[in-house]
Computed example of a mutant assay.
Amino acid sequence: MRKFTFKAAALVVALGTMSAASAAINLHGEAGEEYTNLSASFGANEPGLTFNGNWAHSDNDGDVAGLGMGINMPLGPVLFTLGGKALYLNPKSSDEGYAVAVGGGAQVPLGDFITVFGEYYYSPDSLSSGVDDYVEANAGVRLRVIKSMYVEAGYRYIDMAGKDGHRDNTLADGGYAGFNFTF
């Protein structure tokens, strides 16, 4: 039984590595009124496994850093993503901790140059420490400038609900402008 479990785990890791090795790399940056978000992803716009990492910062409310994994599934022109993130939380007015958030999103191309997208991730108190819950959501529109460069505008919300009498730390709650480079 252990040999089977080890072989199955090795197969999943190997498939994930091959998928990430052949996938496009996206570098993303965005700035809102009071926050910054930087990320990198592998395979974010293609069917199959996708991997990502990000760092969000607010001078007023703290930092969040995360690593995520998901699976992209096309349904007609729409690309749906289901996945999860392991997050390090460093709220300004509470104890640092972690969260394991689950969620997903969708991307809908509107022709060759415009894509609308949205995503939502949530971690309840039972999957987080230092906060009551963690919520991350964003929606926007992406415009292709050249083959490997996109500009985007959207709305992002990132909140770490206070626990044990600490205040909520809302890292992002508003519009942003951003860019994507694809390699």
Rank of each mutant, 00 (worst) to 15 (best):
F4Y: 05
F6L: 07
K7C: 03
K7L: 09
A8L: 11
L11N: 05
A14Q: 06
A20E: 02
A20Q: 06
A21G: 07
S22A: 10
A24E: 06
A24Y: 01
L27S: 02
H28D: 10
E30C: 00
E33R: 14
N37V: 00
N37R: 09
L38K: 01
F42E: 02
L49V: 15
L49I: 15
N54M: 10
A56D: 13
H57T: 04
N60R: 15
D63F: 01
V64E: 03
A65Q: 14
G68W: 00
I71V: 15
N72T: 14
P74D: 14
P77N: 11
P77Q: 11
F80S: 06
F80Y: 15
N90M: 04
P91H: 11
D95N: 15
A99C: 14
V100F: 15
G103D: 05
V108Y: 13
P109R: 02
D112P: 01
V116H: 03
S126Q: 02
S129P: 08
G130Q: 09
Y134V: 05
E136N: 08
E136H: 06
A137M: 07
K147M: 00
Y150P: 00
Y150L: 06
V151E: 14
E152R: 04
G154E: 11
R156L: 13
I158R: 01
A161L: 05
K163A: 13
K163F: 11
H166M: 07
G174Y: 15
G174Q: 12
G175M: 15
G178V: 05
N180S: 14
F183A: 12
